[in-house]
């Protein structure tokens, strides 16, 4: 028995613009991990996320969390989303337009449960001043913070995020990533985040799953997936420069400038000699497995 908290093995049939193809995914995740799910659109990432949440049901398979079967098609077990220990952050925020920010959060409270978590989350997200506003009176970044806070009200064991930051500008994206890391430290959830951004993956995730055509084609630590890839580059390039480096445990924290924005990425300690200040690099960024190469 391993100490994996989340165990998934499902089969499904995906209907896409390119026709129907089989989906087959299995992986396991340890408690407290943040996993990034990436890959071309239409590969089944959102479907997988919704199946884990119980919003969709795969044709067959098992999903176990903390030893409980959320789904076991052989034993006809399928726990409703209401009773899965999850938080879900939707791509379009899915805030309830008829409720204020505070009401959106308190809606998630179970009857008779302690409401202090709402104030705690409002304060932590810096939304306390805006708590009486309606979602339509907020900016995109503010709405996304409400969505994140709301998903955490029930203190979920598993947080699922579907491209949560795709509609906000890079500066806001950076702040929201910071917020997720803070919350992760405080509430100790396990998380799966669907994202296309390599920098985001390096910043947030300790596991990456690459999905292509309904299959999980790669699964591992970000450095292993991206930095030692033998895959051919095919798509576009992002130029960057190393600004600052710092040591943190067995990792190297590196501030890089990518497209005029400063980003923090985590690299394995083994790369310490390669990563020097001022060194320029190119991230080869095909949709699936980007690669780093040094220019100087």
């Amino acid at each position: 028995m391993s100490d994996n908290q989340l165990k998934i093995a499902i089969r499904h049939s995906l209907h896409t613009a390119h026709g129907e193809f089989p989906m087959e995914v299995s992986f396991a995740l340890e408690k407290g991990r943040i996993m990034a799910l990436t890959g071309p659109s239409g590969a089944g990432k959102t479907t997988l996320l919704k199946q884990i949440a119980g919003l969709q049901t795969p044709l067959q398979g098992q999903i176990h969390f903390d030893g409980t079967a959320w789904l076991d098609s052989e034993n006809h077990q399928n726990v409703a989303p209401q009773h899965r220990n999850i938080g879900f952050v939707f791509q379009d925020y899915a805030l309830f337009p008829n409720m204020t920010v505070a009401e959106n959060l308190s809606y998630a409270l179970a009857k008779g449960s302690d409401a202090t978590i709402v104030d705690e989350l409002l304060a932590a997200t810096g939304l306390d001043q805006l708590s009486q506003r309606k979602p339509s009176q907020l900016s995109g970044g503010q709405q996304q913070r409400v969505a994140l806070a709301r998903a955490l009200v029930r203190k979920p064991g598993l947080l699922l995020l579907d491209e949560p930051f795709s509609a906000v500008d890079p500066e806001m994206r950076y702040q929201l990533q910071e917020l997720i890391l803070q919350f992760h430290k405080r509430y100790h959830f396990t998380a799966i985040i669907v994202t296309h951004e390599t920098a985001e993956i390096f910043r947030l995730a300790d596991q990456v799953g690459v999905m292509e055509n309904g299959k999980l084609t790669r699964f591992g630590a970000p450095a292993a997936i991206y930095l030692h890839s033998d895959a051919p580059d095919e798509s576009f390039f992002i130029h960057g420069e190393v600004l600052r480096t710092a040591l943190a445990g067995d990792q190297l924290l590196v501030d890089v400038s990518i497209e005029n924005k400063i980003r923090l990425i985590r690299l394995p300690l083994a790369m310490q000699n390669e990563v020097t200040i001022g060194r320029k690099f190119v991230l080869h960024y095909p949709l699936t497995f980007p690669q780093i190469s040094w220019m100087s």
């Binding site: 919704k50 949440a53 119980g54 919003l55 409703a80 989303p81 209401q82 009773h83 899965r84 999850i86 938080g87 879900f88 939707f90 791509q91 379009d92 899915a94 805030l95 309830f96 809606y107 998630a108 179970a110 709301r150 998903a151 009200v153 029930r154």
Partner: peptide, 11 residues
């Protein structure tokens, strides 16, 4: 997603 969000919030 409004419906789905409500379900994931236990309602």
């Amino acid at each position: 997603s409004l419906r789905e969000a409500s379900y994931t919030l236990g309602k």
